[in-house]
């Protein structure tokens, strides 16, 4: 939706267009990374006894909220998803409420998956749920921001060769990285190393966060590197 091949026939201009888009994406990603770093650093000055390991749940909340804020602001400013035909206030409100519903559903879905993976069912429900919320923030919220409520688009993006813009590519990369990060983060939990970060869900949320950050950093680089090969199909 950012490339208009019909209107801009000139390849040169298309490339410039792409570069500008990559730059704006990189800046959004930079703010996301910054918000994560700040969420780990700033609360230590404001709150007593705050540490990422010690008061992990607080950090989980703060991190989710700040990343969510950055994403929402970015989506409002840049408007990557096509604006719907009817743009009245009531529609906006329903869309917002629907998004919230989707987000909640995704939290519950992640929660279920995590429990199926072996997280305790009854104990530490709060930890599990907050971790699910963090994962949803990293994945679903971005989808909501970039793709809107169009589920067909979601399925399209997450299938092979489904990306149709660089935003789709970045979404693919960050989502996969966060989930793979969380997946890898679960490995050390059962081991007998007796480290403070082996407590559920610390290693998983760290894994997800590191994966997300890695995804945010690699996505613009990767897209920039492959910008010649990436020919997105128009809508």
């Amino acid at each position: 939706m950012k490339t208009y091949p019909g209107e801009l026939g000139d390849i040169q201009e298309k490339d410039i267009m792409k570069d500008i888009e990559i730059m704006s994406m990189a800046s959004v990603h930079f703010f996301c990374v910054l918000s994560i770093i700040l969420s780990a650093v700033v609360p230590a000055f404001l709150l007593e006894k705050f540490s990422v390991l010690g008061t992990h749940l607080t950090w989980l909340c703060i991190c989710s909220v700040s990343v969510a804020a950055v994403n929402i602001i970015a989506s409002v400013v840049l408007k990557p998803n096509p604006s719907p035909k009817r743009n009245s206030l009531s529609h906006k409100v329903t869309r917002f409420l629907k998004s919230c519903l989707y987000f909640m559903i995704s939290c519950l879905l992640f929660h279920t998956i995590v429990v199926l993976y072996g997280a305790p069912l009854l104990e530490s429900v709060l930890e599990t749920f907050l971790f699910a919320a963090l994962l949803s923030t990293f994945t679903t919220l971005r989808c909501l921001c970039l793709l809107g409520l169009n589920l067909q688009a979601w399925i399209r993006v997450f299938s092979k060769n489904g990306a149709m813009s660089i935003w789709d590519s970045s979404l693919q990369i960050t989502t996969v990285c966060s989930i793979v990060g969380a997946w890898l983060g679960a490995f050390p939990i059962p081991l007998d190393w007796d480290r403070p970060w082996q407590v559920w869900p610390i290693s998983c949320s760290f894994g997800a966060t590191f994966g997300y950050v890695a995804g945010l950093i690699t996505a613009p680089l990767w897209i920039y590197w492959n910008r010649k090969q990436l020919t997105y199909k128009s809508k």
Binding site: R156, S159, K160, N161, G162, K233, K235
Partner: peptide, 12 residues
Amino acid sequence: GSKGYEDANESF
């Protein structure tokens, strides 16, 4: 009759 969709799906 979106062409892009079809292409995207076809390969996979």
